[in-house]
């Protein structure tokens, strides 16, 4: 199951598995977002290259206006994927304390 929506704190909460089947839905949601944007990935269990593409595309669009995506509460599996992909050099990332 995959979910993406604004949380009470105004950040965007992403849950479940962000795979190739769900990437279009995530992209459609994030295409509506403007300004600085924080993604809370605490409940994101899995991301594949399709999901990474969504994050990169959105980050590049937002950086065009000087903003960008910040990724918080990233679990260690997903942080490994970010590191292998070089995303640790492109995004501001906060790893989850657990």
């Amino acid at each position: 199951m995959f979910q993406i929506d604004f949380s009470d704190q105004g950040v965007i909460a992403v849950e479940g598995r962000l795979d190739a089947a769900q990437a279009p839905r995530a992209q459609e949601f994030l295409d509506q977002v403007d300004g600085p944007c924080v993604l809370d990935l605490y409940k994101l269990e899995y991301v594949s290259s399709a999901g990474l593409g969504v994050l990169l595309r959105t980050h590049k669009r937002l950086m065009g206006t000087g903003d960008g995506l910040k990724l918080i509460n990233v679990n260690h599996h997903i942080n490994d994927i970010f590191t292998y992909s070089g995303f640790d050099k492109l995004f501001e990332i906060e790893v989850a304390e657990r």
Partner: peptide
């Protein structure tokens, strides 16, 4: 970032 493109990963 400006040289990165989605895809290929």
């Amino acid at each position: 970032l400006e040289q990165r493109t989605p895809g290929g990963l």
